[in-house]
Simulated assay, not measured.
Amino acid sequence: MTKSARLSEVAKLAGVSPGLVSRLINDDPRLKIRDETRKRVESAIEMLQYTPHASARALRSSQTGLLGFALYHVTDPIYAQMVENAEAAATAAGYSLVLLNASELAANPDALRRLAQGRRVDGLLIQGGYAQAHSSLQVANTMPTVLFNADPLPGFRTVRLDDAGAAALATRHLIELGHSRIAFVGAEGSSSERRYQGYLTAMVEAGLSSHPPIDGGWEADTARAVTERHFGNRAAVTGLVVVSTTSALGVHAGLIAAGLRVGHDVSLVSIHDTWFAPHLSPALTVAAMPLGDLGRVAVEMLLEQIRDRGEGEVILDSPATRIVHRASSARPADEDPR
């Protein structure tokens, strides 16, 4: 029997994110997509004979065989491996994964309420760590739910990565290279706050003065504009730790647009790794966390919630965060080599 193609395989063949494929398949009215990209995805679907399906258990019980996976930046390439691993874990358990837009659910609790009351999914994975999430969480908890990337919350099961540890490791990498003037480029939300605390910890341990976080946001365009404005033609620091790789893409471009040399005037390290990081010029140094494993573990926890509701926090710290040293980080240009 031929194995059915997965959504992640369609995305890979079409050269797009799994989130974009999911939104196209589900006729998301807010999706803006070029005709060329649409045709490429449709060709990949046809070539792989991909068919979204609910589990056969829906024919035998009141369960749908569907798990909802709600992300705030559903098309962000940083989530590709996490979505793929989550989909694989769901498929192995006889479920299908449905990608949802967490921003829309947070802005419209009635839509989430209909999702819960209509039993359209058997459980929900929802991204926490954003201020707008709180309006929908109580509704979400009327069905089996796991929050990921969130702080502990009474009544919920939560799972997240060691954000503070990753940022501390990234900061220590710069310190070990000889940098003393290091800043943190963050965004809104508790995951950024945890990473900033890790930066602060490393700076204090080294006896160095810290800086208030630079709010660069989660999007590359925003981070680029903020970086250009902040640095102008001169860098006040020699090292930057950036909250995510997508943000770092913008910071990288912003530094160059400001007339600064990445890896020479300013060294750059981001949290997370993704496919484009080694292809930047210079290539991006990262603190690589097990983001892909987070998708698998979150699904496994959700399946437990469906069987037996509970609460508590899991911090996924294995495999350990590691520095992938590329050309964007080097010794400060004015460092005495003696």
Rank of each mutant, 00 (worst) to 15 (best):
A11I: 05
A206D: 03
F276A: 08
T158E: 02
V146R: 00
D308M: 10
R34G: 14
E176I: 03
T2Q: 13
H325C: 03
A111M: 12
A44V: 11
F231N: 04
I126F: 14
A258R: 08
Q63N: 07
V204C: 07
G207N: 06
R338C: 13
L169D: 02
A327Q: 12
A283T: 00
S328M: 01
D334G: 02
D215A: 15
V242Y: 00
R234G: 12
P152K: 01
H53E: 15
I271Y: 02
E205F: 13
D28E: 11
D265W: 09
T91K: 04
S62H: 14
R309D: 12
H179N: 05
G217M: 04
I182E: 07
I33A: 05
T91H: 14
S209W: 09
D28A: 10
G129V: 01
Q138N: 13
N141P: 00
N85F: 11
E193K: 02
I45Y: 09
V243E: 02
N26V: 08
E9G: 04
E205D: 15
L7M: 14
S55R: 02
L208G: 10
L48Y: 07
V16Y: 09
Y72T: 01
V185F: 03
Y72G: 12
S281H: 13
A206K: 07
A170I: 02
S62E: 13
A70F: 04
G198V: 03
D221R: 10
D151Q: 15
A106G: 05
I256W: 05
M203F: 12
T201M: 11
S4K: 11
G65P: 03
G198N: 03
V243D: 04
L105E: 06
L161Q: 04
A58V: 06
V74T: 08
N26Y: 12
A106V: 05
L59K: 04
R322T: 15
L208A: 08
E9W: 10
S22I: 05
P212D: 12
G189L: 04
G198D: 07
L24T: 06
L260F: 14
G118S: 06
G128S: 06
A106S: 15
V121I: 14
A257N: 08
E313W: 00
E311H: 09
G216R: 02
I271A: 06
T274R: 05
S180E: 15
H211L: 15
T91V: 11
T171L: 03
S281P: 00
T285F: 05
L249Q: 11
L249S: 08
S210I: 09
S209L: 14
S210K: 08
R195F: 03
H264T: 14
A277L: 09
L13I: 08
P109A: 07
H53G: 13
L105V: 03
P152F: 01
S55V: 12
V204T: 13
P29H: 07
L66G: 02
E188P: 03
T285E: 05
Q81H: 10
Y130R: 13
A80Q: 10
N108M: 11
Q81M: 12
E205L: 09
S270Q: 00
